[in-house]
Simulated scan of single mutants.
Amino acid sequence: MGRFGHVIRARLKTSAGDVTVAAKEVRTRDGPCYRSLFREAAILVAVHEDRHHDNLRSNIIQLLALVNESTKKYIVMEYASKGCLLRLLQQTRRQNGPQPLPHNLRYAVHIARALQELQRLALTHGDVAARNVLITADNVAKLADFGQAGDVYTTVQHVSSNKRGKEPANGDTNNAGNEVLPLNWMSLESLETGEYTCQSDVWSFGVLLWEIATLGREPRYDGNNHPTCHQLARTLRRGIRLRKPPDCSGEMYDVMMSCWRESPLARPVPDILETKLMQMCHTMITEKETAV
């Protein structure tokens, strides 16, 4: 169950037999929910109709069908049997304690590849986080939940300043909380102006790395559990970032910090992130084998 929709496990009848799928429909039959569903459908169609797209190799959730009837509207997608990455990380922390980082870093590599595909298509996700990453039976991470996504060249989002990084007039903070936003995953420019780009997705990817390093803990800034847009933007403008997690290597934290640079153009592009993470995985595995 999400803010706009909910997903059920279903069976899709095909000529080759029944297939287990995930079917997403609106949570409430109202304008915002339908707009979110249609936005997600449009993004997935754009991805999967691209001539360079390869369903077998892609790290974006696979679109299988669209149902657009008067009473029922579904987005039918591949079924990821291991669920979302956030739950997987939290279960690992509760049951087994810390795990070798390369085991979880491969999921980050997969999502870096997904961001490369979105960048090539000039699309942005808008909410890159462990809760929106699904894990298949083959341990492949897939970026999902594109309800907040948009075309960065035609649908850059802007909202009034009292909902973003500027101090609300007359000290009124009530309006600032009217819009439900994943604040602690958002880039500085998204907080201040409502702008979402491939570079803001890279910022969120840095928070995803932090989630992986902490096995699914909630990111919090400067001891403030529930900041407003204005408070968090001011915190970030002072150069404050998420703290280095325990047992996180300096190299890993450096990658996170590079994603959180104030200037969007100074942040690494997704293919550079993939290369750095692959090198880190290789180094960690080599060091482990050498120690044994």
Rank of each mutant, 00 (worst) to 15 (best):
V156N: 01
A213P: 05
R237M: 11
G165K: 04
P182G: 02
M252H: 04
I272S: 14
N162D: 10
I240M: 07
T173R: 11
L265T: 12
D247R: 14
N178H: 07
W185K: 03
G165P: 05
R234Q: 13
K163Q: 03
C281A: 09
M186A: 03
L236M: 14
D271L: 11
P270T: 02
E192D: 08
M186N: 06
T173P: 00
G216M: 01
V269M: 08
G216N: 04
R237Y: 02
Y196P: 00
L183V: 10
T197H: 11
Y153I: 00
A169E: 15
R241S: 04
N162H: 08
H226Q: 13
Y221W: 10
P219W: 11
F146Y: 05
T193M: 06
E274I: 06
L277S: 07
S204T: 12
L242A: 02
S190G: 06
G171P: 08
D254K: 14
A149Y: 04
S187H: 05
E179Q: 03
D254S: 14
A213N: 07
D172L: 01
N178P: 00
S161K: 02
A266Y: 10
I272P: 01
P246T: 01
V159G: 09
G177P: 00
A169Y: 08
Y253A: 05
V159R: 13
Y221R: 04
N224L: 10
P182H: 03
E274H: 10
A213I: 02
G147S: 14
T275R: 14
R243K: 15
M186H: 06
L215F: 15
R234V: 13
L188F: 11
P270E: 05
W260H: 04
Y253W: 13
A149W: 06
H282E: 11
E189M: 05
W260Y: 06
Q231S: 13
S249G: 15
T235I: 09
R237L: 14
S258V: 00
P268V: 00
S204D: 08
R237G: 01
L236C: 04
D254W: 10
R234D: 09
S200N: 02
E195S: 12
E218S: 12
